[in-house]
């Protein structure tokens, strides 16, 4: 039964992705500007060369022909070459993915390390000073644009103190594994901390409010009535129940995480997927935009699916059901 469910969900996800990709294809077709006209701003560049380029990538073909050609090659696993660099679109993303994964993973870690304990603290100490402080901080973090935090962090830790570098780690050949790890950590520290702190507000609020709600629910009250200790109630009953919305949120957050990554990637010169997708959209680099959309789409789908599955595993209410 769960396998059938999983298969059905994955199949519908594939259809969904195809629809989204087709819609994106149409969007770029309608969008003003094309990948090559900006080349003409150089007075030595001839119109013939630009026309030849457009023909090479089939941009002179009618929409339907282009779409069908793309569909056939895409279904055979080839996302086509980038209009800008001529390199396979898929390779561009594959090279960048580890960087984004490192940054997003580290940021998520920071986000939960800050958000969960502070949120629980706020809920347990509801309406006391600690709670107010935590809530105000979380609202401050919300209303604060992430560039603000990023620029301040960079000014302080890179320029003033000189502790942490900007950009991605450089691994010259023959670098020992230990040194590679150390470099990766040093370079990811600043962007990940910035992004993680900015995102922790979310986790903090959901934890606090979820816990507050749960603490008044029947089964938690019942547990307390049975004489279970406060800590035990919190960890065994309240937190797992409150984790429901939180897990949901984590799944829903995936796309938000990836768009949040973009600003951080740009400011900290981090060579990740967000930057590639952003540049591709601005230069109307259709194959790269489609490949990136497929990638983020797969993440959204998997995120939701994972959230749904986990929700079932964690929440004691659905477990009982």
């Amino acid at each position: 039964m769960p396998w059938a469910f999983l298969l059905r969900r994955l199949a519908s996800a594939a259809v969904l992705l195809l629809i989204v990709l087709s819609a994106t294809f149409a969007l770029i077709y309608v969008a003003p500007g094309d990948p090559f006209s900006a080349m003409l701003l150089d007075p030595r560049v001839g119109a013939d060369a630009v026309a030849a380029l457009r023909a090479h990538y089939g941009l002179d073909q009618p929409l339907v022909a282009r779409y069908l050609r793309w569909l056939v090659t895409m279904l055979s696993g080839d996302w086509g070459p980038s209009y800008v660099s001529g390199r396979p679109a898929f390779d561009l993303l594959r090279e960048a993915l580890p960087y984004t994964a490192l940054l997003a993973g580290a940021a998520t870690l920071v986000q939960y390390l800050i958000g969960l304990p502070l949120g629980a603290l706020a809920a347990v100490r509801a309406d006391r000073v600690a709670d107010h402080a935590v809530r105000v901080v979380s609202l401050l973090l919300y209303a604060m644009p992430s560039f603000w935090l990023a620029l301040l962090a960079m000014e302080l830790f890179t320029v003033r103190l000189g502790w942490l570098p900007t950009g991605a780690p450089d691994f010259p050949p023959d670098l020992a594994l230990g040194e590679q790890i150390a470099r990766a950590l040093r370079h990811v520290a600043l962007p990940a901390a910035t992004l993680g702190v900015a995102l922790s507000a979310d986790v903090l609020r959901y934890t606090r409010n979820g816990l507050l709600d749960v603490l008044q629910q029947d089964h938690v009250r019942a547990a307390r009535a049975r004489g279970l200790g406060a800590r035990r109630v919190l960890w065994r009953h309240a937190l797992p129940t409150a984790a429901g919305p939180l897990v949901h949120h984590a799944g829903v957050q995936l796309p938000a995480l990836f768009s949040g990554v973009l600003i951080i990637e740009v400011i900290f010169a981090w060579p990740g997927v967000g930057r590639i997708a952003y540049d591709a959209i601005l230069s109307r680099d259709l194959p790269v935009v489609l490949a990136a959309t497929a990638l983020s789409g797969a993440l959204v789908v998997l995120g939701t699916l994972g959230a749904d599955l986990l929700h079932g595993l964690i929440d004691p209410r659905t477990r009982r059901a």
């Binding site: 996800a13 989204v20 994106t24 969007l27 770029i28 796309p255 935009v289 789908v301």
Partner: peptide, 21 residues
């Protein structure tokens, strides 16, 4: 929910650029 997934997956920057025209 699949429609919601689809909308979340759309590259919104691209949507907005197209709309701007």
């Amino acid at each position: 929910m699949r429609i919601v997934d689809g909308l979340l997956t759309l590259p919104w920057l691209m949507v907005l650029i197209t709309l701007s025209a």
